[in-house]
Simulated scan of single mutants.
Amino acid sequence: MQREAKKRRRPSLSLPILRTSRNQHRAGTLTLGNLLSELGETSFGWAIVVFSLLTLLPLPPGFTLITALPLLMTTGQMIMGYPHVWLPAPLARLQLDPVKLRRTVLRLRPVTRRLERILTPRYTGLFARHNERPLGVLLFVISFALFLPVPLSGWFPAVSMFIVGVGLVERDGLVSALGLIFGGASVLLTTTIVILVFTGADALIN
C-alpha cells in the first residue's frame, strides 16, 4: 500500500521543465543555459532531456541538422570523460520559445505518463563512472541518426534519447536500457531508409 501511494504521489516529469520555463519567460531570462542551470546544469541526464525536446520542436524539415548538434556535443563530452555538461556561450544564450517548448512537452505526455508509473532508482551500475564513456558512444550513435535529415525517422531517435535522459535523471538503469534498445531500433530504421534512398537514386541514375 505504501509503495502504491508513493507512486501516486510521484511528481510529473514534465512539471520541472514547464514551471522553470514559465518562470524564466516571465522574468525575460529563458535561455538554454538558464533552463539547464535551474534544472541541474551538471547533469548529463537533464541536458539530454532538454536537447531531445529541442529536436522535437515544430520546426521545418531538415532542422535536425541544427537541433541535434547539442546532443552530439553532449554525448561527445560523455565520451571524452567530462565531469559535467559544458555549453559554449552562443548555445547557452540561445533563446527558447516557451509556447513551442510547452507544446512539445505536452505532446510527450503519453510517454512521460508511462515512465512515471515505473520509474524508480535501480540497476544504477549502468551509470557508474567507468560506464559513462561506453554509454556516451551508444548515445552519440543514436544522436547521429537523429542528426541525419532522413524522412520519417527523426522522431524515434529523439524519443529514445528523451527516455534515456529521464532514466539518467531518475537513476533508473532499466528505463535507460529500454531507451537504448529503442534507440538501437531507430538507428537500424534510419540505416535502412538511407540504404533504400541511395539504392533508389542509384537505380534512377543507371
Results as ranks from 00 to 15, higher is better:
R3D: 08
E4Q: 11
A5M: 08
K6D: 04
K6W: 06
K7W: 05
L13M: 05
P16E: 05
I17W: 00
I17A: 08
L18N: 14
L18A: 01
N23M: 13
H25F: 13
A27D: 14
G28S: 08
L30F: 06
L35N: 12
E38Q: 15
E38M: 03
S43Y: 08
V50E: 06
L53I: 12
L53Y: 09
L56I: 13
P58L: 10
P58N: 03
P60C: 00
G62R: 07
L65W: 09
A68T: 05
L69H: 08
L69T: 13
L69S: 14
P70A: 10
M73Y: 02
T74V: 14
G76P: 05
G76C: 04
Q77P: 15
M78K: 01
M78Y: 08
I79Q: 06
M80S: 13
Y82C: 03
Y82R: 15
P83N: 02
W86V: 13
W86S: 15
P88C: 06
P88A: 08
R93I: 11
R93N: 14
R93Q: 09
L94W: 04
Q95H: 07
L101C: 10
L101Y: 05
T104I: 06
L108I: 00
P110A: 02
T112D: 11
E116W: 01
E116C: 13
R117P: 00
I118E: 09
L119S: 03
T120Q: 15
P121D: 07
P121S: 11
G125K: 11
L126N: 05
L126Q: 06
F127Q: 10
A128H: 12
P134Q: 01
P134L: 02
P134F: 00
G136A: 01
V137E: 09
V137D: 13
L138A: 14
F140R: 14
V141L: 13
V141T: 04
V141W: 09
A145M: 01
S153T: 13
S153Y: 00
F156G: 14
A158Q: 03
A158E: 03
S160D: 03
V166R: 00
L168E: 01
V169H: 13
E170L: 12
E170Q: 13
E170N: 03
E170S: 11
G173V: 07
G179N: 10
G183F: 01
G184K: 01
A185Q: 04
S186K: 01
S186M: 04
L189K: 12
T192G: 15
T192I: 12
V194I: 14
L196N: 07
G200I: 05
